[in-house]
Design a protein around this nucleic acid. Sequence first.
DNA 1: TTTGAACCTCTAGCAGGTAGAGGGTGTACA
DNA 2: TGTACACCCTCTACCTGCTAGAGGTTCAAA
Lengths: 142, 142
Amino acid sequence: MLTIGTLGKKTGTKVQTIRYYEQIGLMPEPGRTEGGQRRYGHAELDRLAFIRHSRQLGFSLEAIRELLDLSDDPDRPCHEADSIARRQLKQIEQRMARLEALRTELKRMVRECSGGNTSDCRVLEVLRDHSECLTDHEDIGA
Amino acid sequence: MLTIGTLGKKTGTKVQTIRYYEQIGLMPEPGRTEGGQRRYGHAELDRLAFIRHSRQLGFSLEAIRELLDLSDDPDRPCHEADSIARRQLKQIEQRMARLEALRTELKRMVRECSGGNTSDCRVLEVLRDHSECLTDHEDIGA
DNA sequence: TTTGAACCTCTAGCAGGTAGAGGGTGTACA
DNA sequence: TGTACACCCTCTACCTGCTAGAGGTTCAAA
């Protein structure tokens, strides 16, 4: 039987985060000692490892919830899991494209910096003048 | 004199967001009509455009606060603004590298999906088994 | 003058946690 | 058996960067 702290160490998760996952129903309510402390078994360790790995791949908690539901039911067809993963891949590719555009603009800004005073700083100037901006950024999220 | 709605349209900012920027001290308290409605001039329009453009380049509100302080003082040396921009560029390059690694792993997952049942789904299997994971993801942020 | 779009404040909510207060538990060691 | 102290508990509030809605007021065109 594992304490919450041990579980946290084994999976690289903060104790508070494990309790948070329990609160939102992603982790089950574990058994308790007489004194009320949580004790976990292997099933919970596996489940938490699954969650953490999925988070590291950028899946949202909602997507992970779906994936966990799927993996609880071995007879459901695989394409649902596959399509969640594809969706995730697409999101990541979109984010990368966006970051690529930002990188180009920032590089240009930095390259053109004169090293003088802020009054003729290229960085500030570029930020002030949106019309020089080549990229169209619809939304701001990372 | 511009209403808050007009300012919002000109800069692509929601009205609530402008009020939020005022609340956190990023935008100044503007003049008001007798009835209490906000009215803006050109200085505020420029300032908001600066903020929005910086946000679109991924700068945090704190970084923008620094940049605005710098640009308010034309005699300060430029290298502070330059280093904020370089920091931002670095962050973006780190994020891109991270996303690149995730993309590789997700692509592998999706490619290997059998199309059968979840019981032998490659996607779920990979998520369950962290040891197959080639990348080391320190933190999860986007 | 009337209509109705746009404005006002205030509070609460989103993701995905993190931090701290104030107190209880479990166990190793003497 | 006592005691130290690391770890656990709940609860609440905070973080970023907004967004939504309730309930009410103002402005400007027709």
